[in-house]
Write a protein that binds this DNA or RNA. Structure first.
Length: 695
DNA sequence: GCCACAATGATTTTT
DNA sequence: TCATTGTGGC
């Protein structure tokens, strides 16, 4: 097959690049995934072993997509190192973490569990002042910085007392992690680097292994990830990175777009390739995106262009309030879907915060438009899923107190905090894991007979699961045993919770996932647990034909024929929380990401007032709106659309009651009965009521 | 150990 | 406003 077919000159140059450092600045929609995969295919064509190629992505979804495309291109492709940073580090640590004094059957905890551990520590210290979220943030930054921890904490701009407290908490936290035989997300990267630095022969092993390194979404790497890649590439210097500084929207999570500059400094002779031709959007949309992002200070100018032609104008709609805005979105979707024969899945609605989705949901629901919210409730964060995972983790890692505490009384076994405390004290005293302590449950002082029996039962059950795992039973089978033996399913069925059915379905889904997992090369329970920890959400290829709702952040990497950017208001987007120039610039990049998702048509909406934290707030239109040239827009406001003739069935807007539908007109056309979306049914005099017709 | 009510405090979240 | 978290009574 011809790898270069259909590529432009810049893309070809990137695909054909083999040795030495190279940076590809890939604008939105410039075909970067194609370039990455084709470059791998080209390397393989040139006789390079697939296993000598390391390709790093940020999401499992991106990694999976790349693998799929390669499998299509090269049917026998067996490269197993197309991974996220975290998954690659996990694979490395699984082989060598014992050199750092960790047990090889360590498990991974996610951010929530890390926060819970921090909360527990704070509670032990009777510290009710320190905010766990903040501490967690500091801890993450400390690890990602790769600095000496003592000096990192000493350099914090906090009072000395606080700094000392934080440092001491940090040490306790890390001590606990090791004790529990778990690592957090940051540890995966940092421990891997530690391994490389302390054991040069290990580093060399991987350097010889990964002769060709590729990193996607480089603008989103943090300092530790930058250093990790640099270490691995430092022997041969065959590092190929792809990124777009204008799409860096995660600096608040530790991403350092400055890493691109570091890269340019590290490799002054690197090849720089700019991909500016866009294959996604109309020129109108691209011009809008270019104009907005020009307001940011930038060291690399990019200008997206297309040969698709101008396309439709961007529609700008100014709504009275958030309900009006939502009604506009729903009405427009329903109209367009009918008129242009579009499927619902071609529409996407973006908002800055999840709280904004509600009004939009209600409007869509009212219009019978099917929709899906992306990213609000992640599969693996659901309580029922986490519970079952905790059973599995405890079976693998007997010392995982976090999991133990989570499920010892789920479903209810009559074992409360006091009992747990006694068990943990005993375990500490005798230097046993929590599960081992249960073996000697009769020796634990001050436990009732009933409780003892329950604990023995629990002990036997977990051991049985562990035995199954040891005998390499299929993960699905183990999950089945957990669901039944623990009584979890029965308890759900008996509970009478309104969402019990959904939960049961989710558990079924977990089982299905584990069945699929059985086909993987590495399919032990340990591997499954690592997968679960590293995959925050299941990317069920949404085959539903629904409108998609998500935050601007969630939209990154996606594309839709028709996009609604809602809440384009000062204080909402940009957020009232961003005040520094840097903050505003990041919001602007987020706006740029939003605009460039749209393929054919873009709608920008704002509301003159909206409900925030219980009270009404008036917001100015977003500054980003003014940064788009006027001639690209066709603007509609709720003003200037007086009701020419009130008839049953039209939608109207009332200054106080919001949007509603005229359901009847009585008294010779003098009085209308209007069913308001929010305010309910009202009778209003048409000559007096401040009504406007909704478009 | 469990349940009901009050107090709180609230962007964005690839792993 | 509203969902989550903590406290007090049983």
């Amino acid at each position: 097959m011809d790898l270069l077919a259909g590529l432009n000159d810049k893309q070809k140059e990137a695909v054909l690049h083999i040795d030495g450092p190279c940076i590809v600045l890939a604008g939105a929609g410039s075909g970067k995934t194609g370039v990455l995969t084709k470059r791998i295919a080209h390397l393989v064509d040139k006789g390079i072993e697939p296993n000598n190629i390391l390709a790093i992505t940020f999401t499992n979804k991106a990694a999976g997509e790349m693998r799929n495309r390669l499998n299509d291109m090269l049917p026998n492709f067996a490269g197993s190192w197309i991974q996220t940073f975290h998954a690659a580090c996990f694979k490395i640590l699984r082989m060598d973490i014992d050199k750092l004094g960790y047990d090889k059957n360590f498990t991974i905890i996610d951010d929530n569990e890390a926060k819970n551990l921090i909360k527990a520590i704070l509670k032990e210290e009777n510290d009710y002042e320190t905010k766990p979220e903040y501490i967690h943030y500091i801890f993450k930054n400390a690890k990602n910085s790769l600095e000496n921890y003592e000096s990192y904490f000493a350099n914090l701009s906090e009072p000395l007392e606080e700094k000392n407290k934080y440092f001491s908490l940090f040490n306790t936290y890390n001590f606990r992690l090791k004790e529990l035989n778990v690592v957090d997300f940051e540890d995966l990267i940092v421990l891997c680097i530690k391994l490389f630095e302390n054991f040069p022969n290990v580093l060399e092993k991987y350097q010889n292994w990964f002769k060709y390194i590729m990193i996607d979404e480089y603008q989103d790497t943090n300092y530790a990830q930058y250093m990790w890649a640099k270490l691995l590439a430092s022997k041969d210097g065959n590092i190929f990175i792809v990124g777009d500084p204008d799409q860096s929207i995660y600096s608040w999570r530790g991403a350092e777009p400055y890493n691109i500059n570091r890269f340019l400094k590290d490799y002054p002779n690197c090849k720089v390739i700019k991909l500016e031709k866009n294959y996604r959007s109309t020129q109108t949309i691209l011009t809008a995106a270019n104009s907005v992002i020009k307001h940011n200070e930038s060291f690399i100018e990019k200008n997206l262009y297309t040969d698709k032609g101008e396309g439709e104008k961007i529609v700008r709609f100014c709504a009275g309030d958030s309900f009006h805005e939502a009604a506009f979105v729903a009405d427009t979707i329903s109209e367009l879907a009918a008129k242009t024969n579009r499927e619902f899945r071609e529409f996407a609605v973006f908002y800055r915060t999840h709280a904004q989705s509600r009004a939009i949901e209600e409007s869509l629901f009212r219009k019978n438009i099917p929709y899906n919210i992306v990213g609000a409730h992640k599969f693996y964060e659901r309580k029922e899923i986490k519970d079952i995972i905790a059973y599995l983790r405890l079976a693998i890692n007997n010392n995982d107190k976090l999991s133990f505490e989570r499920i010892i009384n789920v479903p209810r076994r009559g074992i409360g905090d006091k009992t747990v405390e006694k068990i943990e004290n005993y375990a500490n005293e005798k230097n046993l894991t929590v599960l081992e302590a249960l073996e000697y449950v009769e020796d634990i002082p001050a436990l009732g007979k009933k409780v003892t029996g329950k604990l023995q039962e629990f002990y036997g059950m977990i051991n049985y699961f562990a035995k199954l795992a040891e005998d390499d039973a299929a993960v699905a089978e183990i999950i089945d045993e957990v669901l039944n033996m623990s009584g979890y399913i029965q308890d759900l069925k008996d509970s009478g919770q309104p969402d019990a059915q959904t939960k049961l379905e989710n558990l079924q889904e977990l089982k299905s996932l584990s069945l699929e997992f059985a086909d993987e090369e590495e399919n032990t329970l340990e591997d499954f647990l690592a997968r679960v920890a590293l995959v925050q959400d299941i990317d069920d290829v949404d085959n539903d034909n629904t409108v998609v709702l998500m935050t601007y952040h969630g939209a990154k990497g996606l594309e839709f024929p028709i996009v609604f950017m809602t809440g384009m208001e000062e204080g909402v987007f940009p957020s009232y929380r961003s005040d520094s120039v840097e903050d505003i610039e990041e919001e602007r990049r987020l706006c740029y990401v939003g605009i460039t998702r749209a393929m054919e048509q873009l709608f920008l909406t704002n509301a003159e007032s909206r409900l925030l934290y219980g009270y009404e707030r008036s917001n100015q239109p977003s500054r980003f709106l003014e940064e788009i040239p006027e001639d690209l827009l066709s603007t509609y406001t709720r003003h200037g659309k007086p009701i020419v003739k009130a008839v049953v069935g039209i939608r109207v807007f009332h200054k106080k009651f919001g949007a509603g539908l005229i359901t009847d007109i009585i008294e010779d056309g003098e009085i209308a009965i209007i069913d308001f979306d929010q305010a309910g049914e009202r009778m209003l005099r048409l000559d007096l009521a401040p009504l406007e017709k909704l478009i």
